[in-house]
C-alpha cells in the first residue's frame, strides 16, 4: 500500500528522519519483547527461568517434552489440542457454509432491506457473552452437552458468524458487476457464474475470513472455561492455565506450553495481516 504512495514524506533522509525510523524500530522491538521472552523462557531450565532475567543460557527442549507428556488424572496436551482442533475446525467450516451464501445474498444479489439484515447480524455481536452465559449453561446442561466438544462447536459457530458475514460481504462487494453481467451474456447459469467468476475473485477473502474465525475460536477462553472445563471438552487455553501450579517452579514449563499454544495463531496472523485487519474492522476499511 505505502509503496505506491507519492505524498510528501516529511523528514526523510535527514537526521530527524533516521531518528524516527530508529524510534519505530525501538517501539516495534519493545512490543515484541514479551513474546520473545516467553519463547526464550520455554527453552530454559526451571532454575534459569526462576531467577534474575537471563539472556544467555544453555537451551534445552526438556520443558517442551515435559508439558506434552501426559500425566494421569490431568488434562493432557494431546487431549486439549484434539479438543481445540475439533471445536475450531468444525465451527469454522460451519461458519463458512452459512456465511458464504448469506454474504452473497447481501452483496451481489442484494435482497430487500439488506442493510437492516446486515445490522441485525452485527447487533448480536454487541451483546456481551456474559449476559447470555447462564441460559447457555442451563441449556447445555439440559442437553447433556456440558464438558463436550459439541457445545463449543455450536457456540463458536454462533460467535464467529456475524463477523464472517460482514467480512465476506465486503469482499463480495468488490467483484465487478460487469464481469458477472458478461458471464450472464455468455450464457453462464447461476452456478457457473459462482464457480467460474465470483469464487476465484473472492477466494483470498474467504481464506482470510476462515483464518480469522480459526484465530478467534482458538484463543477463546471464557465459554470454554464455563461450559467445558474438564478433559472431555477442555481446549488449549485451559491446558495453558493448567500449567500454573502452586507446587514448585513452573515458569519455564508455562512458557513452553504458552509457546506451543500461541505459535500456530501467530504464524497464521503474520501471513494474513492485511486482509485480517479489514475483517476485524468489519469490512469497513478497504
Amino acid at each position: 500500500m505505502s509503496q505506491g504512495k507519492t505524498g510528501p514524506v516529511v523528514g526523510q533522509r535527514t537526521i530527524g528522519g533516521y531518528l524516527l525510523s530508529l524510534l519505530a524500530w525501538v517501539v516495534g522491538l519493545l512490543f515484541f519483547f514479551p513474546v520473545f521472552w516467553m519463547v526464550l523462557s520455554g527453552f530454559k531450565t526451571e532454575p534459569d527461568a526462576n531467577g534474575p532475567p537471563k539472556m544467555f543460557f544453555e537451551p534445552t527442549t526438556e520443558q517442551f517434552s515435559e508439558v506434552t507428556s501426559a500425566t494421569s488424572g490431568l488434562l493432557s496436551a494431546g487431549q486439549a489440542f484434539a479438543n481445540s482442533f475439533w471445536a475450531v475446525s468444525v465451527s469454522t467450516i460451519a461458519v463458512m457454509i452459512l456465511a458464504i451464501p448469506a454474504a452473497y445474498s447481501l452483496s451481489i444479489k442484494p435482497i430487500g432491506k439488506w442493510k437492516d439484515v446486515l445490522f441485525f447480524f452485527i447487533s448480536t455481536k454487541f451483546l456481551p457473552i456474559v449476559a447470555a452465559i447462564l441460559p447457555l449453561w442451563i441449556i447445555a446442561k439440559e442437553l447433556g452437552w456440558l464438558n463436550t466438544r459439541i457445545v463449543l462447536m455450536v457456540l463458536y459457530t454462533a460467535m464467529n458468524l456475524p463477523l464472517a458475514i460482514w467480512m465476506l460481504r465486503s469482499f463480495f462487494a468488490e467483484v465487478p458487476k460487469e464481469l458477472i453481467e458478461a458471464a450472464q451474456i455468455d450464457g453462464a447459469k447461476l452456478w457457473g457464474q459462482i464457480t467460474s467468476v465470483i469464487l476465484p475473485i473472492v477466494a483470498p477473502g474467504i481464506a482470510a475470513t476462515a483464518l480469522l474465525c480459526v484465530i478467534f475460536a482458538w484463543n477463546e477462553f471464557f465459554l470454554a472455561v464455563q461450559l467445558s472445563p474438564s478433559s472431555g471438552g477442555a481446549t488449549v487455553p485451559i491446558w495453558v492455565t493448567g500449567n500454573v501450579t502452586s507446587r514448585g517452579n513452573f515458569l519455564a514449563k508455562l512458557s513452553a506450553a504458552s509457546t506451543l499454544a500461541t505459535l500456530p495463531v501467530i504464524i497464521a496472523g503474520w501471513l494474513a495481516q492485511k486482509r485480517m485487519i479489514r475483517g476485524l474492522a468489519m469490512g469497513a476499511i478497504k
Binding site: V9, A24, F32, P34, V35, N219, P237, V240, T241
Partner: peptide, 27 residues
C-alpha cells in the same frame, strides 16, 4: 513513512494482538 524494514516492524507490533489472551495475562 518509508524506512528500512517497515513491513517487518509492523509485523512485530502486530504480534501482541495475536497472542492468546490467557497467555498474555500469564506471561
Amino acid at each position: 513513512r518509508k524506512f528500512f524494514g517497515q513491513g517487518f516492524v509492523r509485523t512485530l507490533i502486530l504480534t501482541p494482538f495475536l497472542i492468546m489472551p490467557v497467555v498474555a495475562g500469564l506471561v
